[in-house]
């Protein structure tokens, strides 16, 4: 039963991260996902200090706000201080993450958060924190319920906003010209990334979140030329990595999150080598280095 809950948790995280990751990589913002997943830390700690509980809702709100603040700061430094985009990302998220770490260490006695847990997570502990009703009925791990709700919300967001997200990702200038607000969709996407990150990181850790945000989407990008197929393939790649990663970890008796992240990397390598349209071993068209 534990294996089931761990794989289910991994798969839920994989699903929402991969879906959002498709948009991030096509917007050339993969590293913004990385930034958000770290920068939400102070939001979580502050939410915890204010409410004194580890309830999911205040944490999601705190992290959501910090995530949007992060993207806003990145834009701001890039546009007004005219720092390069990557430098702006690097400064913003390390700074916010560091504030989070300081807050944790200063309030160490009061905050039931562990720095290692933030970075690496501990997916193996998921089945220990069960949601047990007053009648004593066990409904399974809490994390799975939180993640299931978040995953549903993300899927709903993408289904309802499909054409707007597609257009603002492909051609923001045209979208703005015909009256579709690019900033509404940009900031709502960033909020979705923030919420996903927070809901996920407690169980799988920030590093696996980043792996899930980028690798399955990049793998799917290599395998198809159709955007809807890319969304589906990225989810499949993410779920497959969760399953394979779990058994790999059992086999080598190592970290589950580490094994899952490793499998996402292996998937990417396989797609890179064997993709029917872009793979370097089976190529239909000449592979050319990207020119900018």
């Amino acid at each position: 039963m534990n294996a089931f809950w761990i794989i289910l948790t991994g798969s839920l995280v994989a699903t929402c991260c991969s879906l959002l990751g498709c948009y991030l990589i096509l917007r050339r913002m993969a590293m913004v996902g990385d930034a958000i997943s770290h920068a939400v830390l102070p939001g979580i700690v502050i939410a915890f200090l204010l409410t004194g509980s580890r309830d999911s809702v205040p944490m999601l709100i705190g992290a959501g706000l910090l995530g949007v603040l992060t993207t806003f700061l990145i834009e701001f430094f890039h546009r007004y201080a005219r720092v390069q985009a990557d430098a702006s990302i690097g400064v913003t998220f390390t700074w916010l993450f560091a504030i989070g770490i300081i807050l944790i260490s200063v309030y160490a006695g009061q905050v039931d958060l562990d720095q290692d847990c933030v970075l690496y997570g501990e997916i193996a502990y998921v089945p220990l924190d069960l949601w047990i009703t007053e009648e004593g009925l066990s409904l399974g791990p809490r994390t799975v319920w939180t993640l299931a709700v978040v995953t549903l919300l993300i899927i709903l967001y993408i289904v309802l906003g499909y054409k707007e997200l597609f257009l603002t990702t492909f051609d923001p200038a045209y979208a703005a010209a015909i009256g579709i607000s690019t900033s509404v969709w940009y900031y709502s996407l960033m909020t979705a990334v923030s919420i996903t990150t927070v809901a996920s990181f407690e169980s799988v850790g920030a590093i696996l979140v980043v792996a899930f945000l980028v690798a399955p989407a990049a793998t799917a990008y290599l395998l198809t030329d159709n955007f809807k197929t890319m969304l589906l393939l990225s989810v499949l790649a993410g779920i497959l990595a969760s399953v394979a990663g779990y058994y790999l970890a059992v086999w080598i008796d190592g970290s589950i999150a580490g094994a899952i992240a490793t499998v996402t990397g292996i998937e990417f390598m396989l797609a890179f080598l064997f993709s029917p349209s872009r793979g370097i071993l089976i190529r239909k068209k000449q592979l050319q280095p990207v020119q900018h």
Binding site: F170, D171, A173, T224, D225, F227
Partner: peptide
């Protein structure tokens, strides 16, 4: 102004 490698 757009990325023509976009999956579309």
């Amino acid at each position: 102004s757009v990325d023509w490698d976009f999956p579309a």
